[in-house]
């Protein structure tokens, strides 16, 4: 059974079909790429999966059950984590608190126990603090734990956003252009990070990325979107050779770029 399955999924914004008739199946443990030109509908696919938009056509199954109409909070709680193309950290919170917020759903203390500093609240806090620090440590962010999230350099913000998403213990992680704005060596480092995340946290990953070196380097399969529709799906080697994909997106210099 696929972990995630999109069946003829589509959405219209007025007259615009941002995504149409999209079929996509991610088996457990996959690292799948989603590529395509600007405005192809990639981010919209993420917004459909995470419930920010409801599809106007088709169905979306997660672990075999439809999640259409469940809303972002319940879909996230069901085990789908994500990052955003335009980073969305909590700017007013410290690096540590950005991660601790993600544990909120798992805390047991009631409002009054929190206010009265009851034992259960103290246990909750101690556990959230330890777990968040451990997670930051594995991401190399522990030295910045007490800094404001908005004071981090760009590359580390992307890292923190991935760490925060993982704090919810997702089964499926959606990464929207994590290498955007990175130089080749930073992108290379990110590639290793993504591989390492999949192995360490056992998550299935769906990755949107324009850096072809990254996508081709780590994804087992790739889906190519253009004008909201799937124009190809296959292994990186197949995608690289596909004339339709070269025409619509990759262009002639792809071999140079991925060399």
């Amino acid at each position: 059974m696929s972990l995630l399955e999109l069946k003829k999924t589509g959405i219209r914004f007025g007259g615009l079909r941002a995504v149409c008739d999209l079929d996509l199946a991610l088996p457990q443990g996959a690292l799948h790429g989603l590529i395509g030109p600007n405005g192809a509908g990639k981010t919209t696919v993420f917004n459909l999966i995470t419930g920010i938009y409801a599809p106007t056509e088709g169905d979306i199954l997660f672990q075999g059950t439809s999640i259409v109409g469940a809303g972002p909070t319940r879909i996230a709680a069901a085990g789908i984590g994500r990052t955003f193309q335009n980073i969305r950290l909590f700017a007013g919170l410290s690096v540590l608190d950005n991660v601790k917020v993600a544990f909120h759903r798992h805390l047991h203390a009631t409002l009054f126990e929190s206010v009265l500093r009851a034992p259960r609240y103290l246990q909750d806090e101690a556990r959230a603090d330890a777990d968040a620090r451990q997670l930051l440590d594995t991401f190399g962010l522990l030295p910045m734990a007490e800094l404001g999230a908005d004071s981090l350099p760009y590359g580390l913000r992307r890292r923190l956003e991935i760490a925060r998403a993982l704090a919810t213990k997702p089964k499926l992680l959606l990464l929207d252009e994590p290498a955007a704005g990175m130089n080749p060596s930073e992108a290379e480092e990110l590639m290793h990070l993504i591989r390492w995340v999949r192995e360490t946290f056992g998550v299935t990953i769906l990755l949107i990325e324009h850096h072809m070196a990254v996508v081709m380097g780590i994804c087992e399969r790739i889906t190519v979107l253009d004008h909201g529709a799937r124009i190809a799906e296959g292994t990186p080697a197949e995608i690289r050779k596909d004339p339709v994909v070269i025409e619509a997106y990759l262009g002639a210099d792809v071999h140079q770029e991925t060399a």
């Binding site: 972002p72 007013g92 919170l93 917020v101 909120h104 759903r105």
Partner: peptide, 14 residues
């Protein structure tokens, strides 16, 4: 504070 900063991100954390 997270509600004030970014509701969409907060929902994505369940």
């Amino acid at each position: 504070a997270a509600v004030r900063d970014n509701e969409i991100a907060l929902r994505s954390l369940g």
